[in-house]
């Protein structure tokens, strides 16, 4: 039996988290297949065939999968589930929305957000905002898993030569769930969960206007911009910037936290970063406990100086 990865994509390209999920799948069983459910998604299927280590691509190209509603995609996954021992998706809002619904239909207990694989039935996952790591063993005959993108390396996008099979669409929501619209954040910057450098701001920034200072720094470093929940709630930046237990999990080479206190819910989303810099005027701020380099200073002094120093 082989392992199935549900591709996350936007009908034009694969999301990077698909590649890390392929690596996780390959650790379980080297025979990996990918399901691409979408509309007008041939470019996605084509690029999936080239991923190293992938043997088979299942494609279902149909208007009903254009927005990949969980109700529709879950029915399709269930229809092909029989031949696979494990089914994985990224632990993103896409995968978290989908996998449990498949679990309900197959009567399987899903395992969320795994960060390592001990064996084909035993996995490690963070609980309590990453303050504890649980090793869990599944006795279901099929395993349904979401994998944390930052915990696995990305599979190479070249070198593979997978075969392609077309699937027939399956009845799903029957119109009871309908897509209405979306407002996606447009940005030229690297994607938050995938960037080499992340610059994040908190309530200390004080306003959306001031956040621009931080964005300038991010552009100099070719970094993604993140935020604490307080900064998002205050409306300084959109919701998809939130890093933390209930936002995105990031693990860049460099994470710069500016005007962020370091609540456990925030740390849960960034403490696996390789190098952490904290800039905060309060020397007692908990963020300093996880920082490799801490600078106790007013961020409004620091930001212009930092930008100037990087210009050199």
């Amino acid at each position: 039996m082989s392992v199935l990865v549900i591709a996350e994509h936007d009908n034009a390209e694969l999301k990077p988290a698909t590649l890390t999920t392929v690596t996780a799948a390959g650790e379980i069983d080297p025979s990996v297949a990918i399901l691409v459910a979408g509309f007008d998604c041939h470019a996605v299927a084509e690029s999936a065939t080239k991923i190293a280590g992938v043997a088979q691509i299942l494609v279902c190209d149909d208007a009903r999968y254009q927005h990949q509603l969980a109700e529709d995609v879950a029915a399709l996954v269930v229809a092909v589930a029989g031949e696979f021992s494990h089914i994985l998706a990224p632990a993103s809002t896409f995968g978290k929305n989908l996998i449990p619904r498949v679990g309900a239909m197959l009567d399987v207990s899903p395992i969320s957000d795994i960060v390592s694989i001990e064996s084909s039935d035993t996995f490690v996952r963070p609980v309590y905002a990453g303050n504890a790591m649980a090793t869990v063993k599944s006795s279901d005959d099929k395993k349904l898993i979401t994998a944390r993108a930052t915990a696995f390396a990305a599979a190479a996008t070249t070198g593979g030569s997978a075969s392609v099979s077309e699937l027939q669409p399956v009845d799903g929501s029957g119109g009871r769930s309908r897509f209405v619209g979306q407002e996606l954040t447009q940005s030229e910057r690297p994607e938050l969960t995938n960037a080499r450098v992340v610059v994040s701001g908190g309530r200390g920034l004080g306003s959306a206007e001031n956040f621009k200072l931080l964005e300038q720094l991010a552009d100099q470093l070719d970094a993604a911009v993140g935020a604490s929940r307080a900064a998002v709630d205050a409306g300084y930046v959109p919701n998809d910037y939130q890093v933390g237990q209930t936002g995105k999990v990031v693990a860049p080479e460099l994470y710069i936290a500016i005007g962020i206190s370091g609540a456990i819910q925030h740390l849960a989303g960034m403490k696996d970063s390789k190098v952490i810099v904290a800039i905060n005027k309060d020397e007692e701020a908990p963020i300093f406990q996880v920082a490799d380099y801490g600078l106790v200073a007013d961020l409004f002094d620091v930001l212009p100086k930092l930008s100037a120093a990087l210009e050199k």
Binding site: H67, L69, S92, T93, F94, S177, R178, F179, V180, G181, Q182, E183, L184, T185, T193, P238, N239, D240, K248
Partner: peptide, 10 residues
């Protein structure tokens, strides 16, 4: 609230 921003379903 989805990873890329906001999505509305009916």
């Amino acid at each position: 609230e989805v990873d890329g921003g906001l999505e509305t379903l009916s």
